[in-house]
């Protein structure tokens, strides 16, 4: 009998430990995010650091986001054509490609690609700085690392991601257009006209709002994991993996919540 009780106790304790761990992580992530945001809002600011991060997160992510959007737009056109053909609705291809890219695929796929690129690099950089005591050194040089390292990255990613998503939207629609005209025999003028006619401002702004949130998540997870990185190469490696995985999952989860909020059924 005692053995059975101990088994049940152990089982319950492991569930409890997992729940406590989750609560603890959520709490410390929330505090970290609030601290980071408070430093974005309060001086002193480091404009050079911000500019450098804007270049790194925004500009250098353009090829990745552009290629993702181009191929997605093309594939989307083919899929919708094939699906639409079943009920003689091939003509919806341009508008559905546009709406699908702008509202959903542009920000989400772009966000996931940037998460892989930027979250990982931020986590690796900050993790290495943590391991080699560079973050401690910043403190001793009277510079708050939350302000100097975290705040510029949060702000840069939150501002760069909508711009990237917008470029992705345009390139994605172009990809759809190219496939539509070259493979599916659409008239170019009609394709462009249909795209424009059915696209609403709300579609575009909602996608850009999503992208801003994703940008914040990307930088936040990179910074959080890197800043709290464990010791040694293994610690930095784990921080990098955790950053990409957690950023990706949070992007997908928040995408659903944002879609519910922006387009209530």
């Amino acid at each position: 009998m005692p053995a059975a009780i101990r088994l049940v106790q152990g089982f319950l304790a492991s569930i409890g430990a997992a729940v406590l761990g989750l609560c603890q992580t959520t709490g410390s992530l929330t505090l970290f995010a609030l601290d980071g945001v408070s430093h974005v809002l309060r001086p002193p600011w480091y404009p050079m650091e911000f500019a450098r991060q804007l270049l790194r997160i925004g500009y250098f992510s353009l090829p990745v986001v552009g290629l993702t959007a181009l191929f997605t737009g093309g594939a989307l056109a083919l899929q919708i054509y094939a699906g639409g053909a079943r009920f003689n609705a091939e003509s919806v291809v341009p508008s559905i490609v546009a709406i699908g890219m702008v509202r959903e695929l542009g920000p989400v796929l772009g966000g996931l690609m940037v998460a892989g690129r930027v979250s990982a690099s931020i986590a690796a950089e900050l993790g290495t700085m943590r391991v080699t005591e560079q973050i401690d050194a910043l403190w001793t040089l009277s510079t708050n690392p939350m302000k100097y390292l975290v705040a510029p990255r949060l702000l840069a990613a939150t501002l760069a991601m909508p711009a990237l998503a917008f470029v992705g939207d345009v390139i994605g629609i172009m990809g759809g257009f190219a496939v539509g005209v070259a493979r599916l025999d659409f008239n170019p003028a009609v394709y462009i006209d249909t795209t424009w006619r059915f696209l609403e401002t709300g579609d575009i702004t909602s996608g850009l709002i999503k992208a801003a949130v994703f940008g914040f998540i990307i930088a936040l997870m990179g910074c959080y994991q890197g800043y709290r990185s464990g010791r040694g190469a293994q610690g930095v490696g784990r921080a990098t993996t955790n950053a990409v995985v957690s950023a990706s999952i949070l992007i997908l989860a928040s995408n659903y919540i944002l879609t519910e909020a922006l387009f209530p059924a």
Binding site: E133, Q134, D136, A137, W139, T140, S142
Partner: peptide, 19 residues
């Protein structure tokens, strides 16, 4: 705290230079 840290200089074991 920043004012207090202004009084300090520290040499780290690995140098901790910003690479």
């Amino acid at each position: 705290r920043e004012a207090m840290l202004d009084k300090f200089g520290m040499l780290f074991q690995g140098g901790a230079l910003f690479d």
